[in-house]
Design a protein around this nucleic acid. Structure first.
Lengths: 232, 232
DNA sequence: CGCGGCTTTGATGTTCATCAAGTAAAGTGG
DNA sequence: CCACTTTACTTGATGAACATCAAAGCCGCG
């Protein structure tokens, strides 16, 4: 990992502390926080490289990232996207020595990093911490699994509709979205070709379901988009 | 859940205890074991029904199951298969009130069941237990996620090859496998139609890669099958 | 200005789902 | 145990969905 900059900030005011403690106690907070390091990344930076050893426990403080891996036929495959409060360093931290995916910033992003050994120690010592972490882990992996199953069962149009709704509802919470990814990245996420993603977007535009201005997309007919996402 | 029969057995001799404790201590074992109930199911029985409330922590003692869910267009979708030591009750136990998948026996199967509240209590009280459980949870979900990504990136032939290798290496540990699932279930797992699964198996047979006798399949040319699984 | 990456559209062929029809196997009631 | 029903399996024909190839416009950046 090669951060662009590095500085400290207070955990006391950080909203992310609820990731670890439902009811925060200053002692416990100190315990986790004293060793944390914060890093800043610019759009496009690689935060974690597939194959790296897992030494740290990482979580997003601000920004947006993609989790991606290289398939054996040389293509990129995007597992999922993550914003703050979604864990990043979760898929393999407790089950593998090395990351089997890369994490790349889609936007200016800052992360906090804890030594994995410290986190494991805290799990041993603090039952509340352990339980809370297990819930977050479970929620995050559940979401990835269900999202992948949804994508798998859909056809091209349904998949594109799914992605648009995902960014609209989950990331931007608005009908106006500024796609943080290229058409090619959408294709890598839903497992289709770039050309067909573009063709589908053009068709949605022609049918009055969306309006597009480059990366800016306005969802005009959410009802129809939802129907396409569900039924074809 | 409606078990076919129910009886007690000793946890002391059960190999599954390593799921919970790396180094087993009789006190701790007693703590988990005292409240456990064992159930037996016959091939085809539903062990968990999608939508059921999650009150228990369940693990497979023997047998084989499929995890399946209903999609919104009325089809079945198989998430994964599980044998002993793969967790079953893991996907949502710590993150949801209800199961979002069914668990169905593909073979005569016995499970052990613990009250979820007890397990949570033990997580709070015992750091080793918590840590060990988190590792198992992480391993199990990792496997489901990576398996799903592999399937998604492959074409029909690669997917069928993938399934054959999966059963051969992971479930039966032999070149001779007795498929525990129908052609239709394979289709539900890899997201293709039953007809095309059959066509592909016929083709593998014609090409001398496998031999088939109904559900009995003999993998003759594993090298070629692996190549098909990887590269198309 | 020109280069490379992203985007777009069209033409063509491959892969796959769907429909249809038939055979084999497995359960069911008399 | 046999007729009957149902479910699983199999093959072929057809069309729809999708990938691939090709070409051109757009845009940011050195």
């Amino acid at each position: 990992m090669e951060p662009n900059s590095k500085y400290e900030c207070s955990c006391v005011e950080c909203k992310l502390k609820t990731l670890f403690f439902e009811k925060v106690d200053s002692n416990e907070l100190e315990m986790v926080c004293s060793s944390k390091i914060e890093y800043q990344f610019k759009k496009g930076d690689t935060i974690i490289r597939e194959g790296d050893f897992i030494n740290d426990f990482i979580y997003l403080k601000s920004g947006l990232v993609k989790l991606t891996r290289q398939t054996s036929n040389g293509k990129e495959q995007i597992l999922s996207f993550a914003k703050p409060f979604d864990f990043v360093s979760l898929l393999s931290v407790f089950s593998s020595k090395r990351y089997n995916y890369s994490v790349i910033a889609l936007d200016d992003t800052s992360i906090c990093l804890l030594a994995l050994a410290d986190v494991k120690k805290t799990i041993h010592e603090n039952g509340d911490f352990a339980m809370n972490l297990m819930v977050k882990l479970s929620e995050a992996t559940d979401m990835i699994i269900l999202d992948n199953l949804e994508i798998r069962r859909k056809h091209l149009k349904g998949r594109v509709a799914h992605v648009l709704i995902y960014f609209s509802e989950y990331i931007y919470k608005s009908n106006m979205i500024q796609l943080p990814v290229s058409r090619r990245e959408i294709a890598e996420y839903i497992g289709m070709t770039t050309e067909n993603v573009i063709r589908t977007l053009s068709e949605f535009k022609k049918d009055g379901i969306i309006r597009t201005f480059g990366k800016d997309i306005d969802i005009v007919d959410l009802v129809r988009l939802r129907s396409i996402s569900e039924h074809g």
